[in-house]
C-alpha cells in the first residue's frame, strides 16, 4: 500500500520543482509569430463569411467588379463584333495547355488485384498486402484502399472486441461515439455497386486515440484518431463477394473534404478489378 505521507512529500517536491523551473513569461516572439500566422490563416467554415466585408473592402470589391465587367464586355466585344456593329479582328485563340495524362497504377502486392488511373495530381505512396496508399499533395490528402477480407474494426462499444468489417457499416459508424454519420449513397466502382458513407469525428467523444480500423497485425497497420483537429472521413465500400472486396478511406479537414472526396471518387471511378 502507498505511504500517504511519502506521497504528500512527493507532491510538495513536485510542486516546488515545477514552480522553480516553469518560465514566468512566454517569449515575445511566440505571440508575434502566432499573430503573423493567424493574420493569413482562414478560420474553419469561413468561405461564405469572407464576403462579409468592411466598407473599404466593399469599395475595393466594387471597383474590382467594375474592372471585371469592363474586361468581360471588351472580351465579348472582341470575340463577336455585333456589339455596336463594329468589326474587329478576331483575336488569336488563347493558348491551351494539355492536361497531364493520368498515370495508371496496377497493384503488385495488394491482395485484391486492382488497377486505377490517377489524374489531377493523385499518386500512390504504398502498395502492401493489406493496403494501397494514395495521396493528393495539392490538398494535403491521404487516402487508402484496404482489403476488406482482412479488415477488423473496434466493436460498437469501447469494451467490445475487434470484429470483421461489419455488414452494416452505416449502423456501426453511427454507434461508435467518436463518429457522427453525415450521409450515405451509392456509386459504381469497378462495375459494382459501392456504398459511400461520410462521417465526421466528434472530438469530445474521442476517449481512445488508438487504432479503430486494422488491416494488418503490425503496429502501424491501422487508422487512428490522434490529433486535435476535427476531421471528416469518406468511405467507399465495394463488395466483390460475401466477405471480400475493398474499403476505400479518405480523411480530410472540413476545408478540403468536399473537393477531396469528389476527386477521390473520380479516382475510384477508374478502378478495375483485374
Amino acid at each position: 500500500m502507498t505511504d500517504p505521507r511519502f506521497n504528500s512529500d512527493l507532491d510538495q517536491l513536485l510542486g516546488r520543482w515545477m514552480d522553480e523551473v516553469a518560465p514566468e513569461q512566454a517569449p515575445t516572439r511566440l505571440l508575434e509569430e502566432t499573430f503573423a500566422r493567424t493574420m493569413d490563416a482562414r478560420q474553419a467554415g469561413t468561405l461564405l463569411r469572407s464576403f462579409d466585408l468592411r466598407p473599404l473592402s466593399r469599395l475595393a470589391m466594387s471597383a474590382a467588379a467594375i474592372v471585371v465587367a469592363i474586361s468581360l464586355a471588351a472580351y465579348l466585344f472582341a470575340q463577336d463584333g455585333r456589339f455596336g456593329g463594329h468589326v474587329v479582328p478576331t483575336p488569336s485563340p488563347a493558348p491551351t495547355f494539355p492536361s497531364p495524362s493520368p498515370t495508371t497504377f496496377a497493384s503488385r502486392n495488394f491482395r485484391v488485384p486492382i488497377s486505377i488511373s490517377l489524374p489531377n495530381g493523385w499518386e500512390t505512396t504504398g502498395d502492401g498486402p493489406g493496403i494501397v496508399n494514395l495521396g493528393l499533395s495539392r490538398l494535403g490528402l491521404d487516402a487508402a484502399i484496404v482489403n476488406l477480407a482482412v479488415v477488423t474494426v473496434r466493436g460498437p462499444m469501447p469494451s467490445d472486441p475487434w470484429v470483421p468489417w461489419p455488414d452494416d457499416p452505416w449502423t456501426w459508424l453511427g454507434e461508435r461515439p467518436e463518429f457522427q454519420t453525415i450521409a450515405q449513397r451509392t456509386i459504381e466502382v469497378g462495375g459494382l455497386s459501392a456504398l459511400v458513407i461520410d462521417v465526421e469525428t466528434v472530438p469530445d467523444q474521442i476517449s481512445d486515440t488508438g487504432d479503430w480500423l486494422k488491416f494488418g497485425i503490425g503496429p502501424s497497420d491501422g487508422f487512428n484518431l490522434r490529433g486535435p483537429s476535427p476531421e471528416r472521413w469518406h468511405f467507399v465500400i465495394v463488395k466483390t463477394g460475401v466477405e471480400t472486396g475493398i474499403v476505400a478511406v479518405m480523411g480530410a479537414s472540413p476545408y478540403t473534404f468536399d473537393e477531396g472526396s469528389a476527386s477521390f471518387d473520380g479516382v475510384l471511378a477508374t478502378l478495375q478489378f483485374r
Partner: peptide, 24 residues
C-alpha cells in the same frame, strides 16, 4: 525544452484560431 515548447504552443494557438468557429 523551451524551443520545442515554443513550437508546440505556437502550433496550438494557430490551430485554435482556425478551429475557433467550431468551438461548441
Amino acid at each position: 525544452d523551451s524551443d520545442r515548447a515554443e513550437d508546440a504552443t505556437q502550433e496550438a494557438f494557430v490551430r485554435a484560431w482556425r478551429e475557433m468557429p467550431r468551438l461548441r
